[in-house]
Design a protein around this nucleic acid. Structure first.
Lengths: 115, 115
DNA sequence: GATCAGGATGAAGAAGTCTTCAATTGACGA
DNA sequence: TCGTCAATTGAAGACTTCTTCATCCTGATC
């Protein structure tokens, strides 16, 4: 039995746990892109973006190829897109649930606070 | 446009980025469970588990109900299970890809090291 | 070969997360 | 009411991760 599997999973999710990295992955869903282009869309310093790209490369979620003067990044498997979709679904559900809860709290001010 | 959406997504993934929390979610996939039972399966101190459960509660991935002397936890939506499945798929793919790469490197020792 | 632009890297301090310990709460039976 | 079991909480130090800065590397142009 592979003991540290959930360890690997946790690392994987931690890799996704950064706004810039998420944005990069989402942009790459529509196809490969040069760093320069990512940079115009993400609003972060070049070296910072580079650091985050390095993290994504290390975990092999993306791959990079040099084309003359520019470097182009791409998702290394389309499964990443699936995963992001699943995450989006669950997130919107969680968020709407939360706002429903808020509404309930507002419309029934006498009821005890949720704990 | 909801500007900090990828922020929310990042937070969400960070929530999943911990071995104990992953294990808890996986155990809860099969149905609700009392803390005591989680504790026997996860091998972590009670207070540590409690801390991680608190994180999961804050992000509303799980919910807890007290039943007399024991506290029972459950997934707050079955979508969590979907997400974990998607993650599992992509992870096993990444891992097998990686070992293929290793094999290639071993069988072609004269080629330049991968960078 | 000097220079330049696009990217990558290393290092250091700031910021955040984990683990652990002691103290606390709530429910239950003696 | 006291003791106890189950679980949670708060706080402190260890440990990671982020951001930023200066520096470096690579390929193109002159």
């Amino acid at each position: 039995m592979p003991v540290p599997l959930y360890q690997a999973k946790a690392e994987f999710f931690r890799t996704l746990g950064h706004p810039v990295r998420i944005r990069v992955l989402e942009l790459l869903q529509d196809g490969p892109r040069p760093v320069r282009e990512l940079l115009t869309e993400i609003d972060v310093e070049a070296s910072n973006l580079s650091q985050q790209l390095a993290v994504l490369r290390r975990t092999q979620l993306v791959s990079s190829t040099r084309d003359g003067n520019t470097v182009v990044y791409a998702l290394s498997t389309p499964d990443v897109a699936d995963l992001l979709r699943a995450a989006r679904r669950i997130l919107t559900e969680l968020i709407t649930d939360r706002s429903l809860l808020l509404e309930e709290l507002h419309s029934a001010p006498g009821s005890p606070p949720a704990r």
